[in-house]
């Protein structure tokens, strides 16, 4: 089976996965007490029984569970993610408004974690007994054990209050209303803290991984051969050893992409970053079911894409995997 067959099979799995995500989440949301009518009425400041009944009917919540589920799944199958009764807007538009912020945050954090983590791991593998090795180990331990909301708040305090060089919240300065390059710079400025916070945990993990596998690879025969050829140490490490050493990092990064999306919820809340995580969190509290389901579905799609990219990355990093199909 070639590359196309491989892709097709992955897509079929993805479709099955998405269907189960939709059904499972729909059932879970249905089991939670209370519904969107309570939220809306609560925020309105109360309402009569008639109004509540009218809203329940308008939102289709008076139908049976299977009925609601069928309507939802068949709509999703047609590409209609539904309607957020809370915001009185289509779900797709609300999510698409938020996706770029989350994708920017998660991918920046992922890139920072992989690149810096690998680099630190490799350096500490080259000089295992040095202070650098010890520093990477300690940082890794610390970064991995600190909860993300705590490290986020601490970074916030340090760089937004004690040394106020970074903005405290948001994705861009609304009051300034910059456009073009100024806007991009403004976003980059706002991105530093949240991305760093999210990256710290994974950076720690990846540096440990890279260090361990680098030490192993540096002990292997082909590295000894490369050294025997008289190659410089830099060439040996970065040209020959790195490709093999980085494989476990890529595997774990792929696996953890979903965890990172979940971590983004906390980071987005701490930094008022207008992403999907924040929207998901609030929607759950409000029982805005169609919006939650839409976000979960789109997150599942993102995770599937992330895993697909991981597999593709394997094929790129280690050509031997390409033949597996």
């Amino acid at each position: 089976m070639g590359f196309v067959g491989w892709i097709l099979r992955r897509l079929a799995w993805a479709a099955g996965l998405l269907l189960s995500v939709a059904v499972l989440n729909f059932s879970l949301m249905h089991m939670a007490p209370g519904d969107i009518v309570q939220t809306i009425v609560g925020e309105m400041g109360g309402a009569s029984e008639e109004t509540m009944a009218q809203l329940t009917k308008a939102y289709g919540l008076d139908r049976g569970f299977l009925d609601q589920l069928w309507i939802y799944v068949s709509r999703v199958a047609q590409g209609d993610l539904g309607y957020s009764y809370y915001f009185n807007r289509p779900v797709l538009g609300l999510i698409l408004d938020r996706v770029p912020a989350t994708v920017l945050l998660v991918f920046t954090a992922l890139a920072v974690a992989i690149i810096a983590g690998t680099f630190l791991g490799v350096m500490s593998a080259r000089y295992p007994a040095s202070w650098l090795g010890a520093l990477v180990t300690i940082t890794a331990l610390f970064g991995f054990s600190a909860p993300v909301f705590w490290s986020g708040l601490m970074l916030l305090l340090l760089f937004a209050s004690v040394i106020p060089i970074l903005p405290a919240s948001g994705m861009y300065d609304v009051a300034q209303g910059a456009t073009g390059i100024a806007y991009a710079l403004d976003v980059a400025h706002h991105l530093v803290l949240p991305a760093l916070t999210l990256a710290i945990i994974y950076l720690a993990l990846y540096s440990r991984l890279a260090r361990a596998s680098m030490i192993e690879v540096l002990g292997s025969d082909y590295v000894r051969t490369a050294r025997a050829k008289g190659l410089s140490e830099n060439k040996v490490v970065f040209k020959h050893a790195l490709r093999n050493a980085v494989l476990p990092v890529v595997t774990v990064a792929g696996l953890q992409f979903s965890a990172m999306l979940a971590g983004a919820v906390l980071v987005e809340t701490v930094f008022t970053w207008p992403g999907m995580g924040q929207l998901a969190f609030e929607s759950i509290l409000r029982r805005d079911n169609q919006l939650i389901l839409g976000i979960l579905l789109l997150s599942a799609v993102l995770v599937i894409i992330g895993n697909l990219l991981t597999d593709l990355a394997y094929r790129f990093v280690d050509p031997r995997i390409r033949t597996d199909g």
């Binding site: 405290a168 919240s169 948001g170």
Partner: peptide, 14 residues
């Protein structure tokens, strides 16, 4: 959403 963030933003006059 977070009262700490609001506090910091106020302190920095954002």
């Amino acid at each position: 959403k977070d009262s700490n963030a609001l506090l910091l933003a106020l302190e920095r006059r954002e």
